[in-house]
């Protein structure tokens, strides 16, 4: 396993599985929200849900296909997203009347959305190192 520089094998396989679950959850939630609640006055959480869904789908795809550049961008976006949305949702709850994956640092999802990008970046760093060395 250490000699493999591929993000989709070994531990990466489990990581891709977790990302796939979140891609499914975030995308499905977004589609559901867009289909049923689009008349609502506040579009922020729904746009955000859709954005989060796209980020998770792209990150899953990038990790599964060893696209390290895209993986870095999407996981970085995910990290920024969960931190910014987490802070904003605590500071001004009215901004996000409906929950998104990233609200309250992903509390509704067991804080996994907060931990996941760190694990993802660590994994990218590790697989990237073995490729260069």
């Amino acid at each position: 396993m250490p000699e493999r520089s591929d993000t989709s094998h070994g531990f990466g396989r489990a990581l891709v599985a977790v990302y796939a679950v979140f891609a499914l959850a975030a995308a499905a939630r977004s589609i559901f929200q867009l289909a049923t609640k689009v008349e609502s006055d506040t579009v922020v959480p729904y746009v955000l849900s859709a954005f989060a869904g796209i980020v998770y789908v792209l990150a899953t795809w990038a990790l599964a296909h060893n696209l390290q550049g895209l993986a870095l961008i999407t996981i970085g976006t995910e990290l920024v997203g969960v931190l910014v949305v987490g802070v904003l949702s605590l500071v001004d709850g009215d901004l996000f009347p409906d929950e998104t994956v990233w609200s309250d640092f992903g509390r509704g999802y067991g804080f996994i959305p907060l931990v996941l990008p760190f694990v993802g970046l660590w994994w990218l760093h590790r697989t990237g190192d073995t490729r260069e060395g």
């Binding site: 396993m1 094998h9 070994g10 531990f11 396989r13 489990a14 599985a17 679950v21």
Partner: peptide
């Protein structure tokens, strides 16, 4: 997946 993480995928799936 032939490494130990193959069953790790199953852990993730079952918890999900």
């Amino acid at each position: 997946e032939k490494s130990r993480w193959g069953t790790g995928v199953v852990v993730v799936a079952m918890l999900s």
